[in-house]
Amino acid sequence: MIHFTDFKSYNEYLGLDKPLDNNIDVGFYDPPNMLSKSEPISVDFYRISIKINFVNKTTPKRKPITAVFFNSPNLIVPAGWDIEPTYKGMYLQLSKKFIEENRYLFKTYLDYGQHEALYLTEEEIEEISAVFKLMMKYYESEKRNFNVLLSYVNVIVSLVEAFYKRQFLTDPKQYNHIVRDFQQSIIDYYNQPVSQLPSVQYFADKLGLTANYLGDIVKHFTQKSALENIHDFVIKRAKQLLVENQKLNTTEVAYELGFEYPNYFSKFFKKQVGLSPKEYRQQLN
């Protein structure tokens, strides 16, 4: 596997133009002059890649697609790629430093991962292409205005956010199983002895997704965050244990649920229910 730590070495490998800046790089693809087949790779920066009429030779039906793809630091593209050099498109590359310094602009979409493509409509292609052309104008200018570039980057990310919401709405069947699998994974987790509270990252790893992508889908379809869904289940299980197993004291219930500290369980329960575990049990009795 080849690991790239900067834009310059990655662009040379692909056959792209030399970057004009170490923290932001914008460009258009030129497939006939680019590498069409690669071994596994990873990069140490962020990429947003828009590819139009893109054909991957490794897919069975080889149907052309138009989509936004993402690369995040240390995300491995395990099979590399083998593509037809007939597509067109554009790319935006951002360093980790750039993201950290402007994190308030970037919500969650740069962490969606390679496998979570966003499929674009014709109207969305025109819209995002127009923004890229304007961004390129300022990127290639000798007197680059960083604030203008940053604004266009923010527009691109905001468009991606809006397009994802459209995709969630237009193809809900694609995502319903993810919500079901997530909720079943919580049940499965508590159907065995536990030693700690589960995290969103734990379930994302189980489902082969990034935590941000899982969180956005769960939030969209349940109107609650993934963490809130976990907390709801923990409270439901806590109530069952308090009612159905009177032999367990609140400390033992806390350990059954994976809380390391019983007093944290009591505070958590009271915040969610409005009563302490002891008060809840007494009220029912």
Rank of each mutant, 00 (worst) to 15 (best):
T251V: 11
G274K: 02
N249Y: 12
F70D: 10
K206V: 05
L16N: 12
L275F: 02
S95M: 00
N212E: 08
V194K: 04
P31L: 02
Q283D: 08
I125R: 09
D181H: 07
Y91E: 03
V148A: 08
K137E: 04
D6E: 09
T121K: 12
F146C: 06
A211V: 04
D82V: 08
S195T: 14
D25G: 03
L284M: 14
L150W: 07
E100H: 09
N71T: 14
Y139W: 06
A211Q: 08
P40S: 03
P172M: 05
I76C: 15
G89P: 01
F221K: 01
N22W: 07
F45Q: 01
Q272F: 12
Q272P: 01
L169N: 11
E127K: 13
A204T: 00
L14C: 11
R166D: 14
H3I: 13
F268D: 00
E101F: 12
I178F: 02
Q184M: 03
Y13K: 10
S49F: 13
K137G: 12
E140P: 05
Q223E: 14
D30W: 04
V194F: 05
S225L: 06
V77M: 10
H3N: 14
K8N: 08
E84G: 03
P73V: 03
G274H: 01
K88Q: 13
V179Q: 07
V218K: 05
T5I: 13
K224M: 03
F106A: 05
K165L: 12
N249P: 06
I217L: 01
G215N: 11
F269P: 01
L275M: 08
N176I: 09
L120A: 05
D6F: 10
F269H: 06
Y139D: 06
I52H: 15
Q183K: 12
K97F: 05
A204I: 01
T121L: 14
N285T: 09
S49W: 14
S195H: 15
E244K: 10
M1P: 02
V68T: 14
I52E: 00
Q246H: 15
K239A: 02
P78T: 11
V179S: 06
N71G: 07
T210Q: 00
L209F: 04
